[in-house]
């Protein structure tokens, strides 16, 4: 159990340290470590966390860290109070690097913001962050989230429809995430 706590701390410390580009880019990292690398939870459970994070207030990075900290412990068979400790550790770990860095950066970065070296580094970081976002979306297109034409054609094609509808509503009609999620939940209740 101690190992799991240490791994949680180390993983979320790294995510906080390298989490450039805001919540969604961090989601990609958390997914990579928590689901693909350590198998602390399934892709389906991870997607549920994202849904909950979208519906509840608070930064998505904090929400995900809190949830993963709890669920990774309970999935491993430990009682809920050990899960609470896991949440605390993961949340503390994800905030710690920003805290240290922002204190230093608050002092120095303002002065060097327009320095060419800093600008060059960011001119490569920003496009890479877009790639992170795209990869996170592609990695979520699994049979757990969409089913497959072979297993259940009805659920598969409905899921594809919901996905396309949601994408168009967000990009073209600038629909807000919360009403969209509530609507799609309702659609799920009717269709499945």
């Amino acid at each position: 159990m101690i190992t799991l706590y240490l791994l949680l701390f180390w993983t979320f410390f790294q995510i906080g340290l390298f989490g450039f580009g805001g919540g969604y880019a961090m989601v990609s990292m958390i997914q990579g470590e928590v689901v693909t690398h350590y198998h602390w939870m399934t892709m389906g459970q991870f997607t549920d966390i994202l849904a909950i994070s979208q519906m509840t207030p608070g930064p998505i990075g904090i929400n995900t860290a809190t949830y993963v900290g709890y669920t990774s412990l309970t999935n491993a068979g430990y009682a809920w109070y050990w899960g609470v400790l896991g949440s605390t550790i993961a949340t503390f770990a994800v905030v710690l690097p920003s805290f240290i860095l922002m204190l230093i950066i608050s002092r120095f970065l303002m002065a060097y913001k327009n320095h060419p070296t800093v600008e060059h580094v960011f001119s490569w970081l920003r496009p890479a962050v877009i790639g992170l976002l795209a990869a996170a979306a592609l990695c979520l297109m699994t049979k757990e989230n969409f089913s497959t034409p072979a297993i259940c054609p009805w659920q598969f094609w409905c899921s594809v429809g919901i996905f396309l509808f949601a994408l168009v509503s967000l990009i073209v009609y600038k629909m807000k995430p919360i009403p969209l999620i509530l609507l799609c939940g309702l659609v799920g209740l009717v269709l499945f």
Binding site: G21, Y24, V27, G44, T47, D48, L50, A51, Q54, S123, R126, P127, V129, I130, L133, A134, A136, A137, L140, M141, E144, N145, F146, Q155, S159, V160, I162, F163, L164, A166, L167, L170, I171, P177, L180, I181, C184, G185, L186, V187, G188, L189, L191, F192
Partner: peptide, 30 residues
């Protein structure tokens, strides 16, 4: 019932992650 609701929500969440790719592409000066 919760399972049904979340079957509808999951594809929407994938879209929520995918949408900023297009929005932020402009900000990142691609």
């Amino acid at each position: 019932y919760v399972e049904k609701i979340f079957r509808g929500i999951r594809p929407a969440v994938v879209a929520l992650i995918a949408a900023p790719v297009f929005k932020m592409g402009k900000m990142a000066q691609i």
